[in-house]
Amino acid sequence: MAIDKPKNKVEGLEEKVHVWPYLVRLEFLCALFTIIGLTVWSIVIDAPLEEAANPTKTPNPSKAPWYFLGLQDILVYFDPWFAGVVAPVLIIVGLMLIPYLDINPKGNGYYTYEERKVAIWVYSFGFLVLWIALIIMGVFLRGPGWNLFMPWQYWDPHKVVALVSVDLPYAFGVRTYNMAMLFGAAVVGGYFAVGTAAYFFVERKAIKAVGFLRMFIKIQLYLIMIGIVIKIVLRLAFNIKYIMVTPWFNI
């Protein structure tokens, strides 16, 4: 089948077409199939209705609606102030900033991987791994006590999981509270400082064209995103609970 590539104009074909009938008929067909699909789905599968709400009977596990399960899963690794409040705000603000941070003029209005590799990687990683994969895990693999169960395993509500995790300063032999706080602050602060400095060094030629503020915000958002992954890995591989413990909040 001959597919006309938009880039090389096909000889003799007009660039502009009438919306009626060309677009309207497509929309009509699309709408028809969607509505048929929705109707069949609704005839075949009933919406769930469990027993009446009962504030004295907490189900185990209690799950948020499926589209928030990625965030609920992050709760394993972060305290609620981050996973439930700061992270969603950062996601929303970060998404809104994308057009103002990505000033690569290429790849505007067509599919291309070659011309904007970093952008595609970052977005796809965030969407497909940190959002979709965590949702799939939350829906199918998280059982009672928010423990991980494989699909063939029985959801045992009495499954015992050893809580052996320690905080990072402790793992490094820091034993007093104040020293641990300092140590943690140094690690977190150092991570952001070194990450930012390294980024500016590697991209030093771009500072003039891209702008300092833009690059600064961009690297902070990258570092937070990478930091989330680092923290997940630290917990799963090394049983590290918090990196920084303060009287007010823990990271």
Binding site: A53, W81, V86
Partner: peptide, 22 residues
Amino acid sequence: LPWDQLAMWAVTVGTNMARATP
């Protein structure tokens, strides 16, 4: 809105987060 167990506890889990607002 269905006001069943699924509804009440999903929303409890979701809104509990607001407790931790800085």
